Amino acid sequence: MRRKVQPQRLMNDKYMHPSASFHIYSQQVDRLCELHWHEFYELCFVLSGHGRNVVNGVCYELHPGSLFLLTPADFHEIGPHGSETLHLYNLVFSDELFSEELKAVFFQEAGAYWNADMTGCYPAVESEFRLIWEESQALGIGHKLIVRGALERILLYTARQTRTGGDKKRNPQHPDVHRALLHIHHHFRETISLEEAAKHAGLAPNYFSQLFRQTTGIPFQTYLQDLRLKFAKSLLISSDYPVTEICYASGFHTLTHFERVFKQRFGETPRTVQKARKQG
């Protein structure tokens, strides 16, 4: 059987102490960190320097004040421009520190990666990260509560900064379906059954299936497959990984099925997409 080679996955036990739900790093990035993904959430704030962050095939420019959140569903590579060095705070944290209430506020559209320009409130955001850093060093009584509060304030600052008037016109999602969508968007590359999604929604499977279709306009399995296909396409245009490995990394179990549904969805084969990228 062919060995499945995928981008490196950074695991909780290597980057966080088993008894902790977070760890903060003050990093100097002076060269490209190649394509990888995480078991945890990663919140980064650029203090100085310029660079780029390529997430799921899309390139985002980084500068002082840039803030981004990576979920367990995101692949990315990050590096500075030219001879510059990126200095950033990097907070990694587990699902334990990310309350369902806050997820509902932050991921209003049930998406994954967030990128924001926080230049306008740089001092406030920098102060919160510095507080997290200090608490992580001192480990005083209640330090986890203080860290949670700082994290929540940073995310709420970001949500407020990026909300526009157009958001008021958005049709609100059913709260139970939204909880399930959050889980699906962050774990779609894993095996997710209708029953598991319904459990996250707190609903019976049959009722959840009906409500899910009413909310999203498509059946559960179609929605899940579409997430995997979009992710596979982004990986095809952002990496040199073989099509077979991208198939597995995107949550598909057989190459034949992946190639068939990919062509149905996009009108071209995975290899055609990859070849066009290399020629471009």
Rank of each mutant, 00 (worst) to 15 (best):
R148H: 07
G280I: 09
A201M: 09
A198H: 05
L229A: 02
R265T: 11
S209W: 10
G142V: 05
K103I: 13
R3S: 07
E100V: 06
Y41S: 04
N90V: 11
K263D: 00
W37Y: 09
V55T: 10
T215G: 00
S26P: 02
Q173I: 12
E195S: 12
A150G: 09
F220S: 02
T162D: 01
Y157L: 14
G267N: 02
S66L: 04
G111K: 15
R265G: 07
N206T: 13
S239A: 06
E96P: 00
D240P: 03
M1F: 02
G51V: 06
V92T: 09
R130G: 01
G111M: 09
K4S: 07
T71M: 02
F40P: 01
H76T: 00
R9T: 04
T164F: 10
H36W: 14
G280R: 13
H253E: 12
S26N: 09
R31Q: 10
V92D: 00
F212L: 07
I78P: 02
T244Q: 11
S209V: 04
H185N: 14
F98A: 01
V243K: 08
R52L: 15
S136G: 11
T158E: 14
E190H: 07
Q210A: 11
G165D: 05
S26C: 08
Y241W: 12
K199V: 06
G251T: 05
L86V: 03
Q27L: 15
T162F: 02
G251A: 07
K278E: 08
S83T: 11
H174G: 00
E84F: 05
F220W: 08
S209R: 12
G49V: 04
L10T: 11
E42A: 12
T222W: 08
H178Y: 11
T215Y: 00
Y113N: 05
V58E: 14
Q27K: 11
